[in-house]
């Protein structure tokens, strides 16, 4: 670093903003914070359901919403990583389901540890294949993971002959249990979700790897010119996402102790919805897990609330779809606003 002070060109571009403008600047900054929008949306949606239904706003239901969020939330953490590098993983829930049926079938033979290990291996291997397809073979992530979705879904059905496996091991169902206080349950699954959110948030904001993930998503060219191995970062992201899908599989077996090859089909898109509503940009390089955490709650609150309000599940899907479009529109609006 050069250290001797010296006069030079003025690049301040207009100097300091006048004081009267500072509150406006503060408001603008707050609105531009990626978490502000999702948080406001969550509060508004919860307020609406609280006013329009009698059953939404009570401790038991709110606790239930949290439990319903756990699997989607953990999938969405992996999805966030992939979306931060301007990718997308359409197969995330399918990979998770594959892990559940591998675990379920092997656990039937009696060896729970082996089942657990093979489930993890299946998740990591398939996720790493996604990473190889995107980096080495330069396939668009959308196509690579769409293909993987079809392959893994069909593969899981072939593997199981379309039957499901009941889960009986306490260890495999651990994530569904946990201390209870009256109507509130603190499941180990939800604790794991929170812990994973914090850990991933740390990795993304406090480590060089996290910085490189954002740089690769923001501008792969600049990252490469600065000596970052772009493909290595992308591969690490897809593979690490696989670890999250595996942990989601564990949580899923805790919530519903059945390994069903045709389960969780909506979760692929739900996880993407959670990430996008949470303010992460599909163009990469912007967003984070705090937003995804809130985005997940929005997705679940919407489903839960609309059910409480007695609205058909097809309308629920329309509602979620509108929300995704609004979220992406919000992102586009801010993006184009800054560039002009």
């Amino acid at each position: 670093m050069i250290s001797s002070p010296k006069s030079g060109p003025d690049l301040s571009g207009g100097g300091d903003a006048p004081r009267a403008e500072s509150w406006r600047q503060a408001v603008t900054n707050a609105v531009a914070q990626p978490v502000t929008g999702p948080l406001l949306a969550l509060v508004v949606i919860m307020a609406v359901f609280s006013l329009t239904t009698t059953t939404f706003l009570n401790v038991g239901n709110l606790s239930l919403i949290f439990q319903q969020s756990v699997v989607i939330g953990t999938l969405a953490l992996g999805q966030t990583l992939v979306i931060l590098v301007a990718g997308i993983d359409l197969a995330c829930a399918a990979i998770m389901v594959l892990a559940t049926v591998v675990i379920g079938s092997v656990a039937m033979q009696g060896n729970v540890a082996l089942a657990f290990g093979l489930g993890a291996l299946a998740c990591l291997a398939v996720a790493a294949l996604n990473g190889i397809a995107v980096t080495r073979f330069r396939l668009p992530p959308f196509i690579a993971t769409l293909g993987m979705l079809t392959i893994v879904t069909a593969g899981a059905r072939l593997y199981t002959n379309s039957r499901s496996y009941p889960i009986s091991s306490d260890w495999l169902m651990l994530m569904g249990s946990g201390p209870s206080y009256g109507l509130i349950t603190f499941s180990y699954g939800s604790m794991l979700w929170i812990a994973l959110t914090l850990a991933l948030s740390y990795a993304l904001t406090q480590t060089a790897w996290g910085t490189h993930v954002y740089a690769v998503g923001n501008s792969p060219g600049a990252a490469r010119l600065n000596g970052i191995y772009v493909n290595r970062v992308i591969f690490s992201v897809y593979t690490l996402a696989g670890l999250f899908y595996f942990l989601a599989a564990w949580q899923a077996l805790g919530r519903t102790p059945i390994a069903d090859p045709s389960g969780y089909q909506a979760a692929n898109l739900d996880s993407i919805t959670a990430v996008v509503i949470g303010g992460s940009s599909l163009f990469g390089g912007r967003g984070g897990v705090a937003g995804t955490f809130i985005g997940t709650l929005i997705v679940t609150v919407l489903k839960n609330g609309l059910t409480q309000a007695g609205i058909d599940s097809l309308y629920q899907q329309i509602g979620t779809g509108i929300l995704v479009i609004l979220a992406v529109g919000w992102d586009q609006y801010f993006r184009s606003g800054r560039q002009s």
């Binding site: 910085t211 490189h212 501008s219 600049a222 990252a223 390089g285």
Partner: peptide, 13 residues
């Protein structure tokens, strides 16, 4: 990298 701040850019990589 436009989404990152000045310090992050100076130390990128």
């Amino acid at each position: 990298a436009t989404e990152m701040d000045v310090a992050q850019n100076l130390f990128l990589g």
